[in-house]
């Protein structure tokens, strides 16, 4: 260890300081802010920030629209994440199966949407869904994809479109890392392509699937760009449609203390869900 303290500090301190300033400090600050409230002396008195204890949290927990929005993104996630990852896994297995020609082209074609920012993708699909602008009039003429019944699933399609290729690549690269001997053994046992995929490939890429699931859960709870953009296209998307939209609209009232409490609850819920999912899959793997 002698003589390495200096270099060690040099390597770790820059990231460490920024991490403390722009990750840890905001978390601490949000928690502190959420424990305060604004009080006025009389109707026209000066506003003053005073300690409010858990008052903001009582408001959060009795805030109907906020919990509705949590329910909405959970429903969204329960449907969209498995569909997206199922498609990604299927495409990765097909790419890896040796049955497909032009692998390099498909890999690139599927990945292109990942290069499109969420805001831009949402604007583009918003046009594609709009009855009077869409090229798919046969569909949009009959079903209003931007109506209250459909708009959540229309957004799910946007998110799926962006991220299938990205998730497919993660799964595909871990398929590539499986040693060839494993397949030879399967072939000797007379396993066909489907059986090899089901009994060998999928279990071996499970860590990659778990990782992509965790990222997808985090992403779902954070939904913001898509619903924010869709507010222009559809009146069904309210200012509290997703938890993050609620945070944003609460902070532009402005009620920073309540918005901070929303943020804290949302971050906790996200950590709990993704951590819980990790633990659940680990326990499954131990059996």
């Amino acid at each position: 260890m002698k003589g390495k303290k200096g270099p060690l500090l040099f390597f770790i301190a820059p990231f460490g300081l920024l991490f403390a300033a722009f990750y840890l400090a905001p978390i601490g600050y949000a928690i502190k802010q959420s424990l305060y409230k604004i009080e006025r002396q009389g109707t026209f008195g000066k506003a003053q920030e005073v300690f409010g204890g858990l008052e903001q949290y009582t408001r959060v927990f009795s805030d109907g629209p906020f919990w509705e929005s949590i329910g909405r993104v959970l429903l969204f996630g329960i449907v969209q994440v498995p569909v997206m990852l199922g498609v990604a896994l299927a495409l990765a297995l097909l790419l890896d199966s040796g049955l497909v020609k032009g692998k390099a082209f498909f890999r690139l074609a599927f990945f292109v949407p990942y290069a499109v920012p969420g805001v831009v993708a949402a604007i583009m699909w918003g046009f594609l869904y709009s009855p009077n602008l869409s090229p798919f009039t046969a569909l949009t003429g009959n079903v209003d994809l931007l109506s209250a019944d459909f708009v959540l699933w229309s957004m799910a399609n946007v998110v799926t479109w962006i991220y299938v290729g990205y998730n497919m690549l993660i799964i595909y690269s871990s398929l590539l890392a499986i040693p060839q001997e494993v397949y030879e053994a399967a072939r000797m046992d007379g396993a066909g392509a489907l059986r090899t995929a089901w009994a060998i490939k999928i279990p071996l890429v499970m860590p990659a699937i778990v990782l992509t699931t965790v990222f997808s859960i985090i992403g779902t709870l954070q939904l913001l760009a898509e619903p924010a953009v869709f507010r222009t296209f559809s009146s069904a998307v309210t200012s509290t449609y997703t938890p993050n939209l609620t945070v944003y609209s609460t902070s532009s009232i402005p009620n920073f203390n309540l918005a901070a409490a929303f943020s804290v609850v949302l971050a906790l819920a996200t950590c709990l869900l993704s951590f819980g999912f990790l633990k659940l899959t680990q326990r499954g793997a131990d059996k």
């Binding site: 460490g16 400090a25 905001p26 600050y29 949000a30 802010q33 954070q222 996200t270």
Partner: peptide, 24 residues
């Protein structure tokens, strides 16, 4: 310890930081 703190940073959604960052 450092690694674990950084790793839990991965699980903290970036959007949860935006508002407190604004306040700071």
């Amino acid at each position: 310890a450092i690694f674990n703190i950084v790793l839990s940073g991965v699980l903290v959604p970036a959007t949860a930081l935006a508002l407190p960052l604004f306040l700071i």
